[in-house]
Nucleic acid binder design. Structure first.
Length: 332
DNA sequence: AATACGTGGCT
DNA sequence: TAGCCAAGTAT
């Protein structure tokens, strides 16, 4: 993992760069290592320190975040970079309390930065740690109610020295050995004290409250292209789903779906995109049309490849569908 | 306290 | 393959 400092680097006296620790931890919120790595490397190449990131236009940061999801993270990332760059002379605070006060940094991320970047004895509790603690101590009560007990176990086990290494080790244990589905208990360094293994309940832990079913919502996205092949894009309002992101013009997404198109031109249907969000399924109808011009008052014209890169996945899917249709039909 | 907020990988 | 799930935060 490119954000880690190797043992040899550590022996040479290097500490992890707080900027990189922060950037990686925000990207890893509810996100797998595999999904975050490419974005991390591109961010670091483009903005190597907190001042560079703070100077960047917000739309550039949001566009670079496209595809990673949970876009409030990108909005808060840029806001946090500005606070650290402008108000804190580019230095991240070292205590959990001060870190916690920055935009986009909650209990987990504050503890992770304090422990990993600053070697503070902070207790890091993420989903992995909760699972490991639930099994190690056979806590059968369901999440989220059992969180305080799991945190108490984690706090008791946190060492005073090298808490960052310890935290990463427990998270690695959860990610590779104490996994949700097929835990490799035979390889686990904690197999002997593990209460769940002793009682054979590891697959049932941690227990969770059942999740509510996802409703289906419907909507329409519009791809208007001008004679030069540019497409009409909009910026979504800051609040709510995909807030602040570049997008295709679209209807509201409701149980019923449908609305007026952004331009009065000759729209034709090109297909449907299905996409599942955290709390609903979306069936998005895609309409396309050629326009003589794309008026500035209804959005911004963009080259298709730039638009694809800057948009959340659901809109990239819709735009790809329309572009394929355009090629197939050989439409001028 | 409960809900809103994305996506892609894995099974 | 349809569903489950991940190194959470804000409100």
């Amino acid at each position: 993992m490119p954000w880690r400092v190797s043992p040899s680097e550590r022996d040479a006296g290097h500490r992890p760069d707080p900027f990189r620790v922060w950037l990686s931890e925000v990207m890893l919120q509810q996100t797998t290592v595999a999904a975050a790595t490419g974005h991390f490397l591109r961010f670091l190449a483009r903005w190597p320190d907190v001042h560079a990131l703070a100077r960047a236009p917000r739309e550039a940061v949001l566009a670079e975040w496209a595809g990673l999801g949970y876009y409030a993270r990108a909005r808060n990332l840029h806001a946090c970079a500005n606070v650290v760059s402008r108000d804190l002379d580019g230095r991240f605070p070292e205590t959990e309390k001060e870190l916690r006060a920055l935009p986009g940094i909650g209990a987990y991320t504050a503890a992770a930065i304090a422990a990993i970047a600053f070697d503070r004895p902070a207790t890091v509790v993420d989903g992995n740690v909760e699972r490991v603690m639930a099994r190690l101590f056979a806590e059968a009560a369901p999440l989220p109610g059992v969180k305080p007990q799991l945190r108490a176990h984690a706090e008791r086990l946190t060492p005073q020295s090298r808490a960052g290494d310890y935290a990463q080790a427990v998270m690695d244990l959860g990610a590779t050995i104490c996994t949700p589905r097929n835990p490799a208990c035979g390889l686990c360094p904690w197999r002997t004290p593990c209460a769940a293994r002793a009682s054979g309940t590891q697959l049932d832990l941690p227990a969770r409250a059942p999740k509510p079913a996802k409703p289906v919502r419907r909507g329409v996205a519009y791809v208007a292209h001008d004679p030069r092949g540019r497409v009409l894009t909009v910026t979504r309002p800051d609040d709510g789903l995909l807030g602040g992101m570049r997008a295709l013009p679209s209807s509201d997404w409701t149980e019923a779906g449908g609305s007026a198109p952004p331009l009065a031109i000759d729209w034709r249907p090109v297909g449907e995109v299905r996409h599942t969000f955290t709390h609903f399924h979306l069936v998005l109808k895609v309409m396309a049309a050629k326009a003589r011009a794309l008026p500035a008052d209804c959005g911004e014209a963009m080259a298709p490849d730039a638009a694809l890169r800057a948009m959340p996945s659901v809109f990239a899917k819709a735009l790809r569908l329309a572009l394929e249709d355009l090629q197939r039909t050989g439409s001028d």
